[in-house]
């Protein structure tokens, strides 16, 4: 697909780097937020909810990685990951606040 690495414009390279970061860092953030959310909200004993959350978090990571490279632009990649992360963070904050006496 890009056999001549030297011939690629800088903009393209930066965009790829940005997508990689979105996939790795953003994806991890999304996965972590999702695992926390499940750990707090799943209707089962605490330890089980945490385990379930951790197990399923990797699927969120996977989807985030795929999304980062499938969407049209790098900016979209970030948006599509950070927005759900922020929503999850909000839910987590609320749930945590309601759980803490």
């Amino acid at each position: 697909m890009k056999s001549k690495a030297a011939g690629l414009p800088l903009g393209y390279r930066l965009a790829v780097t940005s997508r990689c970061l979105a996939a790795l860092v953003g994806g991890y953030l999304l996965a972590a937020m999702a695992s926390v959310c499940m750990g707090l909200l799943l209707p089962m004993p605490k330890a089980e909810a945490v385990i379930t959350g951790m197990m399923l978090s990797f699927l969120f990571y996977l989807v985030a990685i795929l999304w980062s490279f499938a969407c049209r632009t790098a900016a979209q990649a970030w948006l599509g990951i950070l927005l759900p992360s922020a929503v999850l963070a909000l839910i987590n904050g609320l749930a945590y606040w309601m759980n803490t006496p």
Partner: peptide, 8 residues
């Protein structure tokens, strides 16, 4: 992925 342990 220790975030949920940290929180819960």
């Amino acid at each position: 992925m220790p975030a949920s342990i940290a929180v819960s």
